[in-house]
Design a protein around this nucleic acid. Sequence first.
DNA 1: TTGTAAGCGTTATCAA
DNA 2: TTGATAACGCTTACAA
Lengths: 358, 358
Amino acid sequence: MAVTLADVAARAHVSAATVSRVLSGNYPVAEETRARVMRAVDELDYVVNGPASALAAATSDLVGVLVNDVADPFFGIMASAVQAELGGSKLAVVCNTGGSPERELTYLTLLLRQRAAAVVITGSAVDAEEHTSAVASRIRRLAANGTRVVLCGRPSTAAPEGTAVALEFDNRGGGRALTEHLISLGHRRIGYVAGPADRTTTRHRLDGHLAALSAAELAGDASRLTVHGPYDRSSGYAGALALLDREPSLTALVGANDTVALGICAALRSRGLRIPEDVSVTGFDDLPFSSDMQPGLTTVRLPLQAAGRRAGRLALGHEAAPVGGVERIAFTVVERGSTAEPPSRGGVPRSSAAGCVG
Amino acid sequence: MAVTLADVAARAHVSAATVSRVLSGNYPVAEETRARVMRAVDELDYVVNGPASALAAATSDLVGVLVNDVADPFFGIMASAVQAELGGSKLAVVCNTGGSPERELTYLTLLLRQRAAAVVITGSAVDAEEHTSAVASRIRRLAANGTRVVLCGRPSTAAPEGTAVALEFDNRGGGRALTEHLISLGHRRIGYVAGPADRTTTRHRLDGHLAALSAAELAGDASRLTVHGPYDRSSGYAGALALLDREPSLTALVGANDTVALGICAALRSRGLRIPEDVSVTGFDDLPFSSDMQPGLTTVRLPLQAAGRRAGRLALGHEAAPVGGVERIAFTVVERGSTAEPPSRGGVPRSSAAGCVG
DNA sequence: TTGTAAGCGTTATCAA
DNA sequence: TTGATAACGCTTACAA
């Protein structure tokens, strides 16, 4: 990689400045000169030195994308969508924080160091004052540098006023709608396998659930019928078993997200309980696998891909920020086979459930 | 972001060189001086300018990761694993190529421009001479620059001798083992919904399938019982229907990967066919959802996460390259409920299949 | 152990 | 329309 601008300039018999102008294309250059330069570029197989041009121009073509874990489709879909909007010039730096506040700060610092053009922060925040303010100060710093900051699925309160634009998921509304759906089917004893207690997303979804219960005057038992755990399958599995042991008469189980719901379903099957005949189950997010589950999972659909694309465009400044800097993303309740009316009191006893052998 | 090395140096009453030494930590500095510098750094909230230091030191802390699409768990898992190994200093630049040769080249050029420390290329290659050589020349270029190139799941032939280290999946072996499993169960009419015809992965998996068929003298019908399509659910769905129309007596369907198999299962259910009683189904990769399907999907497990981690370590030079620069990754056949003996000739007619209603 | 100074490869200002 | 030339902010011989 010895070939530099100067080499190209020498070969084309022009100055380095001219080569730079031809390459960036934002300055008038005589057609004949341009052709000569391009030929030299081709002949020498010249490739611009990114760091050098970033330094001189004080720009960068890196866009940071903070996610919990790209291997989780929830984040993978958003990261993919952001990347798709970046086009052929910007590069997406995907950072797995694993939900850890420390790593979040580390990556924000790294992106600050890279003078990233933009940063998209996805997923919920840890709900602790010290961490919130630490993140906020990094964001302020980034914004002051000219780095665009976009929150995608994180409350706008994570960033100081005016430093970021936020796309918020209506977790509270979705949580409420889902539980209302169950209540309208006739369910009265509803278990809830929630996410980690300290995340905003967990709290909002749970708030919505509780609001629905309260409205139906069913909130009395709520805390006894709620367990917390990570947003993964095994948490759903363990949580479902724990709740069933605590309250065997449950007729519905709400998962913090689809992955948790998957675990819940596996746990129910392990107990010989049918879905939805014995117990109804719901998820949240509507990940791709949810419609293929047997039965299909009733859940709240979040337009993850659309939100990610939007975040990408906002990161590039290709799209105007919403007024107030905050936009609420709409959700949809998707009713599938995993929810139904609760078993009638005099119905078939549960133990006969395992009897279906095709 | 006005504060620079010089500012810190001034504040600490030392030279810029000393500050640089303290920060990089690879040069002896008096303890007292170091403390003074660190205090100045803290007080000024100094953050190194990445591009500037990359330029001066001719190094970079970017590692490119080429994937088809991070939203696809197959790639998401590998990308996540690579990233996990990068630790708190290197950043993963995830590039979605969508399987397109052009975009692959574009991204390789972009990474070349960034002087990336390493590049991990995942997934299959498009099997066309012109593209193969174009990619090979980019790889040669990267390697010449000191960029480490790691192929993860792509044949080592994609890179010129000595320019890259490769972790190869045994797609041929896995494909063969799976079909042998079906044959051993008694299947004789096996359909195959393959991936795009021009990918190496597609060809290798199909080769293995054909090898197994040939060994059992069943290869005669193979091409009639094979259809091609993308590696997605809808291809599995459409492919399965097409094959069933072409040959209604099929007793087993092999999917190019788990996602395709998911579509196959949906198609079978839409026809009222039971899995595995009427038709056995297999996938490939063992993605997380495969064990949760009903019935569980028989498939070939590729250690995607382990391979990704390995690739990450190789990219950092933290691990010695395998001898010859190529390592074959072992697979495991995972037998689950989606495969069983074919229906006996005099068995229950298929039309009764839809009769199970719990 | 520390300082001086010469790059690193671009971009951008200012003349011409 | 083009060319000198001074930044850009850091690293690293080389000296002290």
